[in-house]
């Protein structure tokens, strides 16, 4: 019973802190261009910004809504607030939290999972902040090494390396199920190569179909 009160207070406070932190970050991020502008002696051109928003901003707005709806349940309250403040969801925070969850062996929707994903996202964000701060500090001496021709192919392929490793981790949970989206998406991209540039949008139909099939398997077997 005491656990429940501890948890209730924890959850309530998470929302309060999460909201305040998000609001302050938001104000600072939107305010910074004006502050920097006043130092440089010019304000943002709001008309141009509005036009720019209509050309690219709308797409990002829609994808933000989708991201919010899809990832919030995966991340829980604390993880959710942090992830949306710190960004890099799909290429880092989500796989990172899933990996931590896998290692800790927690179930989604449980308190353990909420705690593990908050820990994971916080640790991941701090790592990025520290690596970037050190990197910026060392930028001058490091630049020749990091930008050397030899290393470029490695850094250009950080995403395929990530998804290769995760493919093995997840496909083996149900290889037959994995074949369906894999074959479908491969055929789609082979015959409509122009879609490759909008790969991230294709995640939505692919994910939806896989979840649908998983549900059928789940109803039959009770697990994947």
């Amino acid at each position: 019973m005491q656990d429940k009160t501890v948890l209730d207070t924890y959850n309530q406070k998470t929302h309060v802190i999460g909201r305040i932190a998000s609001a302050i970050t938001l104000i600072m991020l939107v305010g910074a261009p004006f502050l920097i502008g006043s130092i440089l002696g010019a304000m943002p051109d709001l008309g141009a910004a509005a036009k720019g928003f209509l050309s690219v901003g709308l797409i990002w707005t829609i994808s933000s809504v989708v991201e919010f709806l899809v990832y919030t349940p995966m991340l829980g309250a604390g993880g959710g607030y942090l992830a949306f403040i710190t960004g890099n969801l799909i290429n880092m925070k989500i796989p990172c939290a899933m990996n931590a969850r896998e290692i800790a062996g927690t179930q989604s929707g449980t308190t353990e999972n909420e705690i593990i994903s908050t820990l994971s996202i916080a640790a991941s964000s701090l790592t990025t902040i520290i690596v970037l701060a050190l990197g910026v500090l060392l930028l001058v001496p490091l630049q020749p090494i990091l930008q050397s021709e030899t290393l470029q192919p490695a850094f250009a392929n950080v995403v395929p390396a990530l998804f290769g490793a995760m493919a093995y981790q997840y496909f083996r949970k149900n290889i037959k199920l994995a074949c369906v989206p894999l074959v479908m998406m491969t055929l789609l991209f082979v015959f409509v190569p122009s879609l490759i540039s909008s790969t991230s949008m294709m995640i939505i139909p692919s994910g939806a179909i896989t979840i649908g099939l998983a549900y059928l398997i789940f109803r039959k077997k009770g697990s994947l």
């Binding site: 149900n174 989206p181 991209f189 995640i203 939806a208 896989t210």
Partner: peptide
């Protein structure tokens, strides 16, 4: 609950999309 399986499935879908795009990129 189905929640866990749904997350795994979502991830399988996501990874498949990217792997598919690499294969598509090579072939076409």
């Amino acid at each position: 609950g189905f929640g866990d399986s749904a997350m795994v499935a979502m991830f399988i879908g996501l990874v498949s999309t990217y792997i598919g795009s690499y294969i598509g990129g090579f072939v076409s």
